[in-house]
């Protein structure tokens, strides 16, 4: 399972990817949507974990673009805000929608669930 993590909160992205890696998940992380698109063009990912609110290309837009690049890619949204609108769009667009702070076990569970 290859996972692409996109979050503008740099340390968060780094830490989370380290934790996922410790659990045997092949994860790459980037800080912007643009970088993510470049990554997705170069290799194939099963799941993308996207922060909803990012400068430049936001999570929702990025998801659409990534879907265009790689159909069949699964998405999990992360948010620090958890507003109603985010939730609505997030639920409609993606398989899962998780609020920060995360529970790592829950994320792992969901990752396994979407790639099954």
């Amino acid at each position: 399972m290859k996972v692409l993590l996109v979050d503008d909160e740099k340390k968060f992205a780094m830490m989370l990817s380290k934790r996922l890696a410790l659990r045997g998940i092949d994860v790459n992380y980037v800080y912007t949507g643009e970088e993510a698109l470049v990554m997705a063009e170069n290799s194939r990912y099963d799941v993308a974990i996207l922060d909803v609110k990012m400068p430049g290309i936001g999570g929702i837009e990025l998801k659409r673009k990534l879907s265009g690049l790689a159909p069949g890619m699964k998405f999990i949204f992360l948010t620090g805000h958890g507003s109603e609108t985010d939730f609505e769009i997030g639920s409609a667009e993606a398989a899962y929608y998780l609020a920060k702070p995360l529970q790592i076990e829950k994320l792992i569970e969901i990752l396994h669930e979407v790639t099954e």
Partner: peptide, 17 residues
């Protein structure tokens, strides 16, 4: 929330280690 998430992940990572 964002710093909290970072604390969470960092502490989680320490624990993982």
């Amino acid at each position: 929330n964002n710093p909290l998430a970072l604390i969470n992940e960092t502490a989680g990572y320490v624990k993982d280690l």
